[in-house]
Nucleic acid binder design. Sequence first.
DNA 1: CTCGTTCATATGACAACGTCACATGAAGAG
DNA 2: CTCTTCATGTGACGTTGTCATATGAACGAG
Lengths: 196, 196
Amino acid sequence: MVSRVESAAATRRALVDAAAELLDEGGPDAVTLRAVGARAGVSRSAPYGHFPDKDHLLAAVAAQNWDAVGERLDELIADGRRSPSERLERALAELMAVGRGHPHAYALMFTAPTAEHADAVAAVSRTHDQFLAIVADVLGDGGDARPIGALLMTSVHGIITMANSGHLTAEKWHTTADELLGTLIARVTRTAGPAG
Amino acid sequence: MVSRVESAAATRRALVDAAAELLDEGGPDAVTLRAVGARAGVSRSAPYGHFPDKDHLLAAVAAQNWDAVGERLDELIADGRRSPSERLERALAELMAVGRGHPHAYALMFTAPTAEHADAVAAVSRTHDQFLAIVADVLGDGGDARPIGALLMTSVHGIITMANSGHLTAEKWHTTADELLGTLIARVTRTAGPAG
DNA sequence: CTCGTTCATATGACAACGTCACATGAAGAG
DNA sequence: CTCTTCATGTGACGTTGTCATATGAACGAG
């Protein structure tokens, strides 16, 4: 029951989960290999049996987060009760909820994987494809969904990061992240053509 | 000529410049206090005579970068030969040029100052106000420029950061950062009303 | 069952880092 | 000239990521 390979896989999962929890709770500075090991019930350099270095462990956390978002998008796509534009709104709102609710985890998802971890790159690619499918469904067969999808994705990403860094204050900009999301969707998806 | 206060001010400037250069060249990891001191011609803990800690030194670098952008926006505002919408395009292009040309410096500008450094907060506020003035000039007297300005600022910020982190590949999204900027301006400033 | 191998994990150690306490030496005030 | 002030240099400490090595239990062969 506790075969060697099973135990190793469990330890790997525990390490990734511990790193994710520490990141969520205390930010990047709280994610030390010693703290990760302690929370996972192993010692400080046990991660080196599963990852080449700390960056790869963090890449595994990022991949897990991307997969979680992809799962939510999957549910949206499978849910036939909603209209395409409603699905797009929900997808963007989901991204916003993750970004605002778990700022550190979100920031990690958008720090260059640079082929450090093939799993992370694949997870990102999968989730992006799912998002593009949702956008394509809204636009119909009229044009290429990718540039419009990119504009939506990058803009929502900018709203989230500026809000998280405290640069999007209501006093200065007289609006909120949620309002900006609504305006963005309205203005970008209004006429579904490819580019202005 | 080398009065004590002058010398101290010169050292402070040298420290900030050294930190900015190291950041530009080697990224955040290259900015160690020892390296900063060495490049500035002083020793490793000289910064502590001018800043409470490393974060405050970095905040000073961020403030300097924000002021530099503000200066460029000032030039745009002062240049009467351009139309308001042309000025807005140039302002956003300027932001994009900084972000793409100096990714580490740009990332630092958008990491929470959180009142660490009053100078940094003031520099950010000044530059944001200048940007809003440019946006207001495009919209005319028809409405509040702030929400539209926020949407433009956050979206461009998102384009820059996603491009810098390698998440905005041409293969996946079939577009480029520059194209997205054009589409953004076209779709957001088309009809100048406040919100959709 | 027994023995030798393999491999995940634990421990010790090292360099580099941010930071502090203290020493030093020159600029400015009287 | 003397004393004070303050920017700077030096030594030291705790923490971090990482590696070399030791250990001990899960496997395959006999």
